[in-house]
């Protein structure tokens, strides 16, 4: 299908829905996601000579998409934001999970065979929904870290926040995801 420099446009379309879902998770806006994927596909066709048949087409496309997403987020960061209030008071969620003396309000209970959940399609739907449910900046930092596998330094730079803030965002994201998974997945089998 793909020798160097030749990419079948139909083959690109096959990856389209995957790329859109990837972009939605990071951008949380279906329209922006569609736009950025469109840009990615155009860039892929324009630069098809750089594609080497040694790598998988999807991996190559995701690489381009990551750049496009970061570009878009940088452009957004420069534009004045109307919706600054995101309900993201730094310690809201963290504080709500602990007593005043720092003990868990409800200590985490063990999860039954989490590895097995990974084979279940419904688990992945729940996981995706829990990701979508996080506040925007929290989700963004978490996705950069775990999904795009960026370092904390890179994330701080992209979001123009301090390292400490970055750790707080990631901590909050993990707590939020844990709560959500516990509530909507693991808790129901208990």
């Amino acid at each position: 299908m793909s020798t160097t420099g030749t990419i079948d446009p139909d083959a690109l379309q096959l990856h389209r829905s995957y790329l859109v879902r990837y972009a939605i998770l990071q951008l949380r806006d279906p329209h922006l996601a569609e736009d950025v994927v469109q840009e990615t596909l155009v860039a892929a066709i324009e630069n098809r000579s750089k594609f080497s048949a040694q790598s998988s087409l999807r991996t190559w496309l995701v690489g381009i998409l990551k750049h496009k997403i970061l570009d878009l987020m940088r452009r957004q960061a420069r534009e004045p934001q109307l919706d600054v209030a995101d309900g993201e008071d730094e310690n809201d969620l963290i504080d709500s999970l602990f007593e005043k003396d720092g003990h868990w309000f409800a200590p985490p209970q063990a999860w039954a065979d989490p590895e097995k959940s990974m084979e279940n399609t419904h688990f992945w739907e729940t996981f995706e929904q829990c990701n979508q449910r996080m506040p925007v900046n929290t989700a963004r930092a978490f996705m950069m870290r775990e999904f795009m596998e960026m370092s904390t330094e890179e994330i701080c730079q992209e979001l123009s926040i301090s390292t400490t803030n970055c750790w707080v965002l990631l901590h909050r994201a993990r707590l939020a995801l844990r709560e959500c998974l516990d509530l909507h997945w693991f808790g129901s089998t208990r």
Partner: peptide, 26 residues
């Protein structure tokens, strides 16, 4: 001395693994 945090620790590891696996599950 803390069961809750031991569970939390394991769950963090799992959450990282799952998050990194997610793109392959679409």
């Amino acid at each position: 001395i803390c069961d809750g945090c031991r569970n939390f620790d394991k769950q963090l590891t799992f959450i990282r693994k799952a998050a990194r696996e997610l793109p392959r599950k679409f």
